[in-house]
């Protein structure tokens, strides 16, 4: 069974009198361990799709299932727990709680999961080391570069031990060098941690690092290609 199964997902927003068809009949399976790029022009529906998978938005029709769990059918509290235990999130920018250090930001999710303080600390240190920020762990987000902040967000997403990490334009605020480095890091960790990643991007060079590229246009999948990229 696929990790993620989307069946005929439709999302229509109402904007006054106008109906915006953000997604129109999306069918998609993602297997465990895949490293997937979601690409397409602005307004094609990438964020909408990621939000539906992440349980931050509900589809107008169709079902999204993660290992048999129908995400839209979860109650509010269950959905919260679903995101806490099953998913990791990396957003475009300002991912971190400004009043917490890098280390505390990573610890936060594990503390919310109910892990002991000691275990959270240990895991957080480990993941900050994996993203190369062991020296910066006491710094607040304001004292980190944009690329470093995104790496902390990746560490936070992985430290929680999710099945699936969703990243909506994680490199949009980075220069191409940092963007490439972040993607390489995500790719590497995806393999090491055997974690599935779905990320959206505009950047050609970024999408080149994906193993599978799904292209959206006007809310429809217009291409779905697997590259033979295996490190």
């Amino acid at each position: 069974m696929a990790l993620l199964t989307l069946e005929d997902i439709t999302k229509t927003y109402k904007q006054g009198e106008l109906l915006v068809h953000a997604l129109q009949g999306i069918h998609l399976n993602v297997e465990e361990g895949e490293f997937v790029a979601l690409v397409g022009p602005s307004g094609s529906g990438k964020t909408t799709l990621l939000n539906i998978i992440g349980g931050l938005d509900t589809p107008s029709a169709g079902t999204a299932q993660l290992q048999g769990t129908d995400i839209a059918k979860l109650k509010e509290v269950e959905r919260s727990d679903f995101r806490l235990f099953e998913l990791g999130f990396v957003f475009q920018a300002y991912n971190l709680v400004p009043v917490l250090s890098a280390l505390e930001n990573v610890e936060l999710v594990m503390v919310l999961q109910g892990l002991s303080a000691a275990e959270s600390r240990q895991r957080a240190e480990h993941y900050l080391q994996l993203v190369g920020l062991e020296k910066e762990q006491q710094r607040r987000p304001s004292a980190l570069s944009g690329g470093q902040q995104q790496r902390v967000a990746v560490a936070r997403a992985l430290a929680a031990g999710p099945r699936l990490v969703l990243a909506d334009e994680p490199t949009a605020n980075l220069d191409s060098e940092n963007a490439g480095a972040l993607l390489d890091l995500m790719h590497q960790l995806s393999h090491e941690e055997k974690t599935t990643f779905i990320f959206s991007t505009h950047d050609e060079r970024v999408m080149a690092r994906a193993e599978r590229i799904i292209t959206l246009q006007d809310g429809k999948i217009i291409s779905d290609v697997r590259t033979n990229k295996h490190d």
Partner: peptide, 10 residues
């Protein structure tokens, strides 16, 4: 919004 997304209960 970020906190809710990463699983903070309301």
């Amino acid at each position: 919004g970020i906190l809710i997304a990463i699983g903070m209960k309301r």
